[in-house]
């Protein structure tokens, strides 16, 4: 009996490696190979192109604004849904799923319908002199919209399971809202929150569908890295496109490494605490 099960085990492990190799390593290797097809000198010059720089800056700015925004809103929403009972709670919980379930292209179109020149909110925006579409705010909004559920979805079941009693204990001991949140709630949801933030970040950086529709694809102005890549690719500039793609890949790898590193630190931390 034992022998047979270990054979199956090995088979599964082999399949897993194969999967990783084909779906992850191969594309990564391809991106690297194609980006260097014109030689390393050109690789650098594609990276230095003004369009590339502004795409990188725009992508970073978008992430720097959209990710914390979604984190805060996600926590607030998860708190409300997990810890309170109110009418429409279930509806709200379902509504959160919408950006998740909808294709990013559809999300982009929805945003255009609301903020576009014939959109519902257009008169208000014009009156306030605000530009949303075809400008950075629209990109940030679209990116935040499609990634909105990630943090909330991670936290809601987590918070529901953890329950309220620790928070209640804290307030009976005199802690105010913020003290309770930071000393009691946050440490307990740390991992779920962190994971949600990483997912959000990765998705914001790589978001294409919705952003490409709302951005107007203006080179040097509203082209994020993914949009810029598509722009290059559509202009027959394959090698340049792959070069920028390798940058995106690098960003993704950095995120992964960060996650790994912090997990490691936490594990060490746990060990040291337990010893005393």
């Amino acid at each position: 009996m034992k022998k047979r099960s270990s054979a199956v085990g090995y088979l599964l492990i082999l399949l897993a490696f194969l999967f990783v190799a084909v779906f992850i390593l191969l594309p990564v290797a391809t991106v690297v190979k194609e980006s260097l097809a014109d030689g390393f000198g050109n690789y650098l010059s594609y990276l230095k192109a003004p369009g590339a720089k502004s795409a990188l800056i725009l992508t970073v700015i978008t992430a720097v604004i959209a990710v914390p925004l979604n984190t805060i809103f996600g926590i607030m929403l998860a708190w409300a849904i997990a810890k309170y009972r109110f009418r429409g709670r279930r509806l709200l919980s379902m509504a959160i799923e919408i950006p998740y379930a909808v294709s990013p292209v559809v999300a982009g179109l929805m945003i255009v319908m609301v903020f576009g020149s014939t959109g519902l909110l257009r008169p208000l925006l014009d009156a306030l002199g605000l530009k949303v579409l075809f400008a950075a705010p629209g990109i940030i909004f679209a990116s935040a919209f499609v990634t909105f559920p990630y943090v909330a979805k991670e936290l809601i079941p987590l918070m529901s399971e953890i329950g309220n009693s620790e928070e209640e204990a804290a307030v009976t001991l005199g802690a105010g809202f913020f003290r309770t949140f930071f000393s009691v709630t946050l440490p307990n949801i740390k991992w779920g929150l962190f994971y949600g933030i990483i997912l959000t970040n990765a998705r914001v950086i790589g978001e294409f569908g919705a952003v490409s529709i709302v951005s107007g694809k203006m080179l040097g102005k509203t082209a994020t890295l993914p949009v810029y890549i598509e722009l290059l690719y559509s202009n027959y500039e394959y090698v340049a496109a792959f070069t920028i793609a390798s940058v995106l890949m690098l960003l993704a790898l950095v995120t992964l490494v960060q996650k790994f590193y912090i997990e490691l630190k936490e594990r060490k931390h746990l060990k040291s605490r337990g010893a005393s």
Partner: peptide, 10 residues
């Protein structure tokens, strides 16, 4: 400034 994309989409 330039914007590029599919002609119809643009």
């Amino acid at each position: 400034s330039q914007s590029h994309g599919g002609s119809g989409a643009q």
